[in-house]
Amino acid sequence: MVKLIKVQTADFNQQQEYERLRDHPSTGAIVTFTGLVRDISNGENINALTIEHYGIMTQKILAELVANARKRWSINDCTVIHRVGDLQLRDQIVFVGIASLHRGEAFAACEFIMDFLKTQAPFWKKETNAEGKQYWVDAAQSDQRALEKWR
């Protein structure tokens, strides 16, 4: 399996990532997920977002998530990109793309990686609200519950 894992401040280009995933001749399905900075979070108006991470551990955890997905499903290619640093509204945060023989595996593997990324990869979001106040985002219970379907 080919895989690409990147943690970067720079933006990413969906079309380029999609074309790379499309390269494998036995791929019949590609599922991609993109997470964006949105304007409302827990009822607050958000103006900007800063993402901090624990560099070495982040790479290690993301590689483990991809390896675990590969144990459960047949995957031809996989891309995980997560941005860090200062982001603005509508900016892209995260990209997960899975190329596999059939759509069922691609959908499942993509959701699996996102569910575990949100609860295990050491990234932390700090939001800036409309008044310019900054605060760290609390972990959502719903993200923990999302893991139950993979047990």
Binding site: G35, V94, K118, T119, A121, P122, W136, V137, D138
Partner: peptide
């Protein structure tokens, strides 16, 4: 050793 709050990426 690293200490940190629950993660909130993605």
């Amino acid at each position: 050793v690293a200490f940190f709050p629950p993660v909130t990426g993605g």
